[in-house]
Design a protein around this nucleic acid. Structure first.
Lengths: 238, 238
DNA sequence: AAGTGGTCTAGACCACACT
DNA sequence: GTGTGGTCTAGACCACTTT
């Protein structure tokens, strides 16, 4: 692993264990440079990562303040799969696969997924169950040219971990849009949403390391189980 | 302005104008270094900014691909005030101030805003009107110790621009939480939400440059006017 | 082999905060 | 003035892709 990543991880540990307490200053970049036996620019890379992820605030002329994370509910927003999410919340997730098929894209799907002509698309429809209730309906569309095979078992576990660990593909970024809609008949038939008047719809486009779009997902959440946390800096960390 | 910022801005221009077309490679870092007459590390800072903001994808051994932004609806999520937001959407926003008062924090507010004992808090209640309909209810709480004076005129314009331009304070980051709730009586009396069964609630803590928390905001949106866009990278850009 | 981006170094100068 | 973080440089070596 990179040197700056090792330093970053060690410093995250120390912050989370309270060795660098909230609202105090970290050692200066020059002190850290000496104690980690590296150059200042490498220290700065580690500190910039801490800053981007909401652990510290750098103040010119003063130092780097440890931000009080007890007031900050969750990690930074990002690409998190359902499985990771549920595990973090300490619940046992149940995934049910309702459909797994190869389709030709229609016009709407084409506008979201940009397939080459004649590309086939995997369509996966799944519900997610937490605490005995079906609260999430996921409709995934994946380019067959990127993911040649897909099985029910993979879909019941985690498509992401299959793609990254088995196929060796790297997911690099995603664009998401969050909207509120009224439940469709499909929502009513797959989810436990009696008495709810809205669903939260998250539409995502997911891209691989070569910037190619390979997946479009529509994730429909019962509103009472939806929570989104965001940490945003006003200025870039360079 | 910084050199890397100038280079970044120029390259954003070229990408948006199509001089660097989507899905093509940028000039290599060494070529850019020569043409901008700078060092490679400075070029890399500009490129990392482009990467963080979703303009390019860097691929080791190959180059930097321009991402097709026509498929990406809006700029990266971040701290955007209502005024900036409405102006971007080309609508004339109307802000109505319903309350502007100094209060002592109760227990719930204390937990969100962490005031010193005896700190007074500005409470500002405003509605936002777009297209003739009141669709957003904003309840802001600001530490008087950070913002000594506040007027109705400022609240009707933009509290943020007053804080940054008049007071000279720098807002540095914010933590947001997005949830769906049922409308309260207050929502019904201030907003045009007849026939809607949910509101989108965005609770934010806003921090200054010295990492001090100075504002807590609850922003309540009519669900049909709510849209949140997010761009997330899986790996850090360093 | 040549070219690309990724990492790391050592040093310089600057803007800013403290004392 | 001293110490802090912010910027910039020139050079080196590495991992990876392409020819």
């Amino acid at each position: 692993m990179n040197k700056f990543m090792l330093i970053y991880n060690q410093m995250v540990d120390k912050i989370e264990k309270g060795e660098y307490p909230p609202s105090t200053l970290l050692p200066s970049e020059n002190e850290l440079k000496d104690s980690f036996q590296t150059s200042r620019e490498t220290i700065r890379k580690a500190l910039n990562l801490l800053s981007q992820n909401g652990y510290i605030q750098k103040i010119r002329g003063k130092g780097s303040v440890v931000i009080d994370i007890t007031k900050m509910n969750l990690p930074v927003s990002g690409l998190v799969s359902f499985k990771e999410l549920a595990e973090k919340m300490g619940r046992e997730p149940i995934t049910t696969v309702h459909e797994l098929s190869l389709i030709h894209p229609d016009r709407e799907l084409t506008s979201h997924l940009n397939p080459h002509p004649k590309d086939l698309i995997w369509k996966v429809v799944r519900t997610r169950e937490i605490g005995g209730e079906k609260v999430i309906l996921d409709k995934d569309y994946l380019l067959k040219s990127a993911v040649p095979t897909l099985t029910k078992e993979v879909c019941e576990d985690s498509i992401y971990s299959y793609i990254e660990n088995q196929l060796g593909l790297q997911i690099s970024f995603a664009k998401k849009e969050i909207l509120i809609e009224e439940p469709t008949e499909e929502d009513h038939s797959f989810l436990d949403i009696d008495g709810f008047h809205n669903v939260v719809v998250i539409r995502s486009q997911v891209f691989l390391e070569d910037a190619s779009l390979f997946q479009y997902t529509e994730s429909r959440h019962r509103p009472d189980k939806f929570r989104f946390v965001d940490f945003a800096r006003r200025r870039p960390t360079v």
